[in-house]
Computed example of a mutant assay.
Amino acid sequence: MGRGGGVAESRALRKMPRAEAMRLVASVRVGRVVFTQRALPAIRPVNHVVLDGLVVFGTHRDSAVATQTAGAPTVVAYEVDQIDEEQRSGWSVVVTGLAVRVEAGERADRYHGRLRPWVGVADHLIAVTPRLVTGFRLVPRTAGASGLRRVMIGTTVEGTPDRAEE
């Protein structure tokens, strides 16, 4: 028995197939978009929907992410997860791809109809075409489980993640 109410401490990360990862992205409505702002990484929580194989999110016309994705396609990462801290289980998916503005029209109207913004109206739609999709599940480590890779994660004094594979 480990800490945390008897939950076993031994966990493993199981890589998931792309289709499963995209289903999980579609199963939640909020994620985080990672983009470049003034040559530095920036992260914003946004509402999204998965339609036509794209991750589509709305934002305000004057937002930082709207400014950075105006014009030419822009490389972004989009991350979603569900983690149960008490059970020490869950999953995480990162979609990396090209983000482009969705122009007004029938497609934009359909996307607007599916999005549920938390604040105001999302007057700027951005669609991410997935190029790289990586997903992992945090699962109990069992003897003889194939396809599981144990990753121990700690933190150094400076706060930098320290990973060691067994």
Rank of each mutant, 00 (worst) to 15 (best):
P45W: 01
V76Q: 05
F35K: 12
L24E: 08
A77T: 03
A145N: 03
G71A: 04
E9C: 02
I126V: 15
E20A: 14
L125W: 01
A12Y: 02
R107T: 14
A164M: 12
M152P: 02
L138S: 10
F136N: 05
E165I: 09
D62I: 04
A127C: 14
V7R: 09
L13H: 05
G105L: 04
F136T: 12
A39C: 04
T142G: 13
A145I: 01
A64K: 07
S89W: 00
I126G: 02
S92L: 04
V34A: 14
T59I: 05
V102T: 11
P140L: 05
G120W: 08
V30A: 13
A66E: 06
V119A: 11
G135V: 07
G6W: 03
V75T: 13
T142Y: 00
G113I: 04
I126L: 15
Q87W: 08
L51G: 09
V49Y: 00
S63I: 07
E79S: 10
T74C: 11
A39Q: 12
R38W: 04
D162E: 11
M1E: 12
R29G: 11
D109L: 10
R18P: 03
F57I: 10
S89M: 07
E103N: 09
D162M: 03
L132C: 06
G135C: 10
L13A: 02
G144Y: 01
L24A: 09
D52G: 08
R11H: 12
M16C: 08
R18E: 14
R141Y: 04
T142H: 09
A104C: 02
G5W: 04
R107D: 12
I126C: 05
Q87S: 13
L138D: 07
G6T: 07
P45G: 02
V7P: 06
D162K: 00
A143F: 03
V128F: 00
A122Y: 02
E86T: 11
V55P: 01
D162V: 00
P17I: 02
S10Q: 12
E103A: 14
D52C: 02
A104P: 10
A108T: 12
A42G: 03
R101A: 09
I43P: 01
Q37E: 13
A26T: 03
V25F: 00
